[in-house]
Amino acid sequence: MNNTYFDLLDYMIYGTAILIILIGLYGALVKKSLIKIVIGLSVVDSGVNLLIVAIGYLKGGTAPIFSPGYLANPIKMVDPVPQALVLTAIVIGFGVTAVALALVIRLYRHHGTLNIDEIKDLKW
């Protein structure tokens, strides 16, 4: 089974990642509900992760993990640095989402609404 199938697909992955970032940015900027804004931020996070992993991809490479199957038949590896970065970024994105949702619950208990047009006072 040959591994040289990524001809124009890498451009397709880039376009997909940028499109997902733009869709999430639209949701985070335009929508009125606070939970929808957090969902938009989460979608942006997914798109950025996909873009960084796609940059580190090498055509015909394999995963940067040593195992007996690799040592028997060594071929070139993809770049491990973006994968390590994304691995950290996923966990940090989850933490950001959790803190934002905790703040959303606090705001709802104080104001009784989630519409950001009705939450005007800065002090709570």
């Binding site: 591994n3 394999t62 995963a63 199957g69």
Partner: peptide
Amino acid sequence: YVFQRFVY
């Protein structure tokens, strides 16, 4: 199976 890596 297609990529032939046991770790996957």
